[in-house]
Amino acid sequence: MRYRLTALVLLSFAVPAAAQERIDTVLARAMTAGKTPGLAAAIVQDGKVAWIGTYGFANVEAKRPVTRRTEFHIASTSKPFSTVLLMQLHAAGKFRLHDDINQYLPFSVRSPALPDEPVTFEMLLQLRSSIRDNPTCYRPLWSGGNGDSPIALGDFLREYLSAEGEDFSKENFFERAPGSKYTYGNTCFALIGYLAERISGKPFASYSEEALCDPLGLRHTHWFLAQTDTLNVALPFQTDGSAGYRPVWHGGFPDWPAGQLFATFLAAYTNNGRWDATQVIDSASIELATPRSPVGLGGRTWTVRAAPTPDAGRPQLLYEHAGGVVGGQAVVAFNPITRDGFIVLANSDGLRLNIKPIMDALQIKAHRPRR
């Protein structure tokens, strides 16, 4: 998931000093190993932002430190945000999961290998749509350093997915039936965002503000670089073998609902959708996307991290999503039962973060679902 997050400006609550010291150590080691100039982290506990930490520089040359108001590109961790926005419309009865998405689009989406097989919302959300990210098309778009994309979301998807489109190719689809196999892909999430736009009747960025950002008080939350104060945005740094890292300019993508947002909503998400005594996110949407038992998992927006426990060998459950772009990385993870979670943002693509030491420092216990 490519997505941007700021909003580490919320009221924070105390985390034990010993845990903070352990987290400081984990993050400092990761920054040194990954040659990362700047980093911000937040801990969520019991539906509240419990701790915020900032480290290093948002801009090395200007010696501008990372602060709680520094905005980061959080890459693909925006995908859960886009999914929630679509699922809000499902909760309102605007579409059904088994509907053919073509009923809601101004162009047709069909695999050239199986043109009679529909793609449903459920297939799209489960990343089983047979839609593929064609590297020939995407590689130049993801190279970074070009600012916001001048291509409108709907235009990009029409040219890529419609048989009449200039960028259409059989390589944009897998030669298998929709619904048959999971494959992670950015195009699916861009289409999720565009479907939310079509169904809501509002531009996706505007619908995002109205449905989630404003209710959550995210006043410095943006999909586009042009909406930000660039002096407040962490400058991306790309890993360089000789110098360690080198600065690159901010880049944007035509498939931006797949990962180009400044926001945080993990606290509300872990609190069953409630924020400041208001039900902002429909709780049924949360349960569909991240059920408390992995059995019958409805979607694949989040990675389900499972590992054997020493005592009984049962699977642990932790929802996680990571993202990376040229000059930036992010990771979000949480336990749906204990409502503990954390966010780490970095302005370098060299960070290699192991989440287990953070879980250990926070004493987060991954939930073991009953059999």
Rank of each mutant, 00 (worst) to 15 (best):
S78F: 07
R2G: 15
N186R: 09
Q316K: 09
A62W: 00
R96S: 14
A196L: 04
D46I: 00
L195Y: 06
A91F: 02
L125F: 09
T77M: 12
G145E: 01
L39I: 10
G252V: 03
F107H: 09
G56C: 04
T6I: 13
Q260V: 01
A307S: 14
P215K: 08
F121T: 12
E164N: 15
N146G: 12
P80C: 09
L97R: 10
H321Q: 11
V344Q: 05
K356Y: 09
A322Y: 00
K170G: 14
S78M: 10
P150D: 07
S285Q: 07
G147Y: 02
G350W: 02
E117Y: 05
L127E: 14
A7V: 11
G273E: 03
D155G: 06
G328V: 03
Y184N: 13
G296Q: 08
G341N: 04
Y182M: 13
E197A: 11
N347K: 05
A258P: 00
P310S: 10
V304N: 06
S78H: 11
G154T: 06
R22W: 00
Y138R: 05
L27Q: 07
A28V: 03
V9L: 09
V332N: 09
T6D: 12
Y269E: 11
E21R: 15
L105K: 12
P254Q: 05
P80N: 08
S108W: 00
G296S: 06
S149L: 01
G323A: 05
R128I: 02
A330K: 06
V295G: 02
G251P: 02
V9Q: 12
C137M: 07
A284K: 15
S108L: 11
A17W: 00
Q238W: 00
T25Y: 00
E61T: 15
S78N: 13
P118W: 07
A289F: 07
H222F: 14
G201R: 06
A196D: 08
D311Q: 10
L216M: 08
D24L: 00
A18L: 01
I355T: 15
C137Y: 03
V109H: 09
A284H: 13
D100H: 11
G323N: 03
H222S: 11
V60C: 03
V9G: 08
I343M: 10
V325H: 10
R69L: 09
G34P: 05
A30H: 03
L157Y: 10
Q238D: 04
K365P: 00
E164G: 12
L345G: 07
A361N: 06
G34F: 01
G47A: 06
H98F: 01
R110H: 04
R2K: 12
L351S: 03
L114Q: 12
T36R: 02
L212N: 05
R128E: 12
P65I: 08
G251I: 04
